[in-house]
Design a protein around this nucleic acid. Structure first.
Lengths: 350, 350
DNA sequence: AAACTTCTCGCAAACGTTTTCGTGTTAAAA
DNA sequence: TTTTAACACGAAAACGTTTGCGAGAAGTTT
């Protein structure tokens, strides 16, 4: 109904110029105490707020940052967003979210939509499809156009940008070591196919842990799941695969699962087969989400500190944005922050 | 480095006017085939895209919608966002997210940040604190300034705007009826204090179901939890309360929990007390999230169809935005869409 | 040859700000 | 009285678009 009030309207109403109004509101000494008060009172009365879009256009920056993530219904990504939003707001930025839904095309489209002036920079985690196709031209292009990117979790080394990652290898290693310490002799891993970088890295950590303890890895103990979005119909298949794993390897006494879902499913299957947890089978998971915390038994897991990752990423991006502002042509040097993982012990281990 | 290219630059480069470039790119018949091709080729080469901010300023609309939710690390809200994002993108809109973190102040601040031109309309779910204080002036003000709002899930009737809700009373009723059908004689409810509207409504549904079946409600079977953000330290207290409930009411054979967390906690406690599920205790939950699906036993629950809610809300908002465009002063009439709940039967009931 | 059309294109305004630079008025200094 | 300084304000440009309108050139009709 009543459109938002503008400087022009205030100016007309008070019979002064637009510039006077603007200056009065910003407490410029150019304006007399008298008119300043008059203008400010009027502005307050009509609840004037400067139009963001106009400011963005003028300042050539929007004070908003774009987030592109594969999906939002996912504890880890939500946590990261929480972290980003927290520091973004604190530093006067807004956050605009795009979902790639793990699709290359949607990732590209979304980035294009946002890159046309809507945002000052990106924080993103790469879609699986993109990772598979290894087509990163859209990232390169936006960077070349002067728009900084910060990648987190799923990153690719070659792209010149800041990154925030978790030390997946180390985390996995620590997780497996926990099982070894606890006396497990036959530790299986449930992981993803290798094109999912985090899966690959965690598998690597598993192998390193075994190696460090002179345990010979057995390929029959390594179950690589084709993770097609973890759809519901896929769940049965997952259960079958895990059941097969147990049945053909009766000696398994420890499981390292690269995510919560694999872990709870493993526990479910193990129980069905009569295994007691943690007495005869111990399980360690990765990613500290609701399932780990609230399922029974609760899961011992490696926390990735998602919120922390988000906070770091946002700081990195905003720092760069505000640095650009002052010091134009500075040598480009990018940072990679590694967030420590942390073992959270719960009921699924002794 | 290389700033994004603008009409002005293209114009200078090709030695024509800005308007010619603009028209050429939009295939205006005013421009000769020749120059049109020339301009388009050049634009393509330099990957020209119109600046969104400038467009927003000119058109006085941003084609982005603002979402304000209490928290994002929450299956239901994430699902809603997924839904909103889905139809928003399909209809050419972007989505910008603000988190109120259940705080009144943050809700107000966030809305102010976005309302100054950054977005065309809001989709939101009210913070608990706001609900408690019953201070809705910020909603009223933004609506009065001509910015439409669509509320979902946590709404307040008096505010003149479109709403998308779940029939909590009916859903709760159906849930409890399921327990009754399954032979439960002593059904307890674990719910929130009444100021949380959904808790109140679901409690009401519980009572109605009992009433319909001539079962006399017992206040000792109604456990109202003070839900302070469900923080971790609060969890112990929750467990104690539930344990107390069971111990002082040994005859309980059915539990209706108004959210997943209450349900899994109830199950955990019940098991500790030696109850078998679903043989000696059946549990129905509300909200279909990861916990319901993947914890053991999996939970029979009322699904709220979060994504559906999001889709409907987005459609409602965009419809209104695009209607305003054509038909200015139209009588204001608001819609409330009720999304059907659906019982999903799993292992926690017979 | 004069009067119309038809094509092409550029000018200028508008969206809402901020800010630089003038400019006119008044008061103080010479 | 004249020059100068301080003060209070306005005009205009800029950010990047789109678009109505005017205008020159060329061609067509009388």
């Amino acid at each position: 109904m009543k459109r938002k009030i503008t400087l022009k309207q205030i100016a007309k109403e008070l019979d002064v110029s637009i510039s006077t109004v603007s200056k009065a509101l910003r407490n410029s000494i150019e304006i007399s105490e008298d008119t300043r008060q008059k203008v400010q009172a009027f502005a307050k009365l009509y609840n004037y707020r400067p139009n963001n879009i106009a400011l963005s256009l003028k300042n050539r920056k929007t004070k908003t940052i774009g987030i592109i993530i594969p999906e939002i219904v996912h504890h880890f990504f939500s946590k990261v967003i929480t972290g980003i939003e927290l520091v973004a707001n604190k530093r006067g930025y807004n956050v605009i979210v795009g979902l790639s839904n793990e699709s290359f095309d949607k990732e590209v489209i979304n980035m294009q939509m946002l890159a046309n002036g809507s945002i000052d920079g990106f924080i993103l985690s790469i879609a699986k499809e993109t990772l598979q196709q290894q087509d990163y031209h859209h990232f390169i292009e936006t960077i070349n156009q002067g728009m900084p990117i910060v990648m987190f979790d799923r990153v690719v080394k070659e792209i010149p940008c800041d990154k925030v990652i978790v030390d997946d290898v180390d985390g996995a290693k620590k997780a497996v070591e926990k099982l070894i310490e606890n006396g497990c002799k036959n530790i299986a891993i449930i992981t993803t196919k290798d094109y999912v970088s985090v899966g690959k890295l965690r598998t690597q950590g598993y192998l390193e842990a075994l190696d460090d303890h002179k345990i010979h890895p057995k390929s029959s103990l390594i179950l690589k799941i084709e993770d097609k979005l973890l759809s519901d119909d896929h769940l049965d298949e997952l259960e079958k695969d895990i059941e097969q794993l147990f049945k053909s390897n009766k000696q398994i006494d420890g499981i390292f699962a690269v995510n919560e879902l694999y872990a709870v499913t493993a526990i479910k299957v193990a129980r069905k087969l009569g295994l007691k947890i943690p007495e005869s089978l111990q399980v360690v998971s990765f990613t500290d989400g609701v399932l780990s915390k609230h399922s029974t038994p609760s899961l011992t897991t490696m926390s990735q500190h998602g919120q922390n990752i988000g906070e770091k990423a946002a700081d990195l991006l905003i720092n760069r944005l505000e640095l650009e502002e002052t010091d134009e042509e500075e040598e480009e040097t990018y940072e990679t922050i590694v967030i420590e993982t942390e073992l959270i012990e719960r009921e699924s281990t002794k």
